[in-house]
Nucleic acid binder design. Structure first.
Length: 271
DNA sequence: ACGGATGTTCGCGC
DNA sequence: CGCGCGAACATCCG
């Protein structure tokens, strides 16, 4: 589920579901989700508190509750917040917040790669997970010169740099793959080889890719309310190795870059 | 049944 | 300190 667009949609859902509402009860399993915190604090600190605000920085969700309680949520690879009313808890619910009217907000995470921590609300922004982040494309925008400076100072491949959260906050394997395709840049190009003009093109492509994904996944979320996976692949090239390039019809190829599968068109994205 | 998966972090070696 | 690589985490899905 989670790169910048999905986390942004999660933030919007959380605001809609429990903005201003009071938590009646809280439960948390003792799992590695609570690494730097403690499930007991989740259960003890949240009941009686009102959600006052939800922010997102990169892939990190920051929830502020009344009483100065803060909750940091990183969805990892398979984390997800869902709202249910009644019924048995969904599979892999690791923590939950009970609300008025029988509604329950569940944090689902089958693989336990995500993270939850309770900390003072006024220190959410100073958490290491947030402090280490570069500019967020949606909140701060992307400065082409600053990105070009990063590119010039590294010997890494451009896709690896795009996924470095210190450079830009929120891009993962999908968004980096899609943006490089839109910008017609091969993912394994040394970042330092990109011209100022190519970097500017890439900046536009990143914005386009994020906006596209937000629209597509936002629309499907409204349709289903309780989002279910398994729809058609909404991406241009991600997950489409061996299929025809949507731009030129050449067969899409893939290779591992920075330990992740990267899909590209050998003709549109020359090395 | 096997292989891969939207993320992060750690250890190892150069 | 930079960087590449592989592994680990735990489960699901095609």
């Amino acid at each position: 589920m989670p790169e910048l667009p999905e986390v942004e949609l999660a933030a919007r859902s959380l605001r809609r579901w429990l903005g201003g509402r009071v938590v009646r009860g809280a439960t948390a399993e003792r799992t590695r989700i609570f690494r730097s915190s403690d499930p007991a604090r989740f259960e003890r600190d949240l009941p009686g508190k009102r959600l006052e605000g939800v922010e997102r920085r990169g892939k990190v969700l920051l929830l502020r509750f009344s009483g100065g309680i803060g909750l940091l949520s990183h969805l990892g690879m398979t984390g997800k917040w869902v709202l249910r009313r009644g019924g048995p808890p969904p599979r892999h619910s690791r923590a939950s917040l009970g609300l008025d009217g029988g509604e329950v907000l569940h944090y689902l995470d089958p693989r336990l790669f995500g993270k939850l921590s309770i900390l003072p609300a006024d220190r959410l922004g100073q958490a290491e997970e947030v402090r280490s982040l570069g500019p967020d494309p949606l909140i701060d925008g992307i400065d082409p010169d600053a990105l070009h400076d990063w590119f010039r100072r590294t010997r890494r491949q451009v896709k690896v740099v795009l996924m470095d959260q210190r450079v830009l906050a929120g891009l993962g394997n999908i968004q980096a793959t899609e943006a490089l395709f839109l910008a017609r840049l091969h993912p394994s190009r040394p970042a330092s080889s990109l011209s100022r003009e190519e970097t500017a093109r890439l900046v536009g492509a990143i914005s386009d890719s994020i906006r596209e994904t937000l629209e597509k996944e936002g629309a499907s979320e409204e349709l289903t309310y309780v989002e279910e996976p398994g729809g058609p692949n909404p991406f241009l090239v991600y997950g489409r190795t061996g299929q025809p390039c949507p731009r030129c019809g050449s067969t899409l190829e893939s290779e591992s870059i920075g330990g992740r599968t990267s899909v590209f068109c050998p003709r549109c994205q020359p090395t």
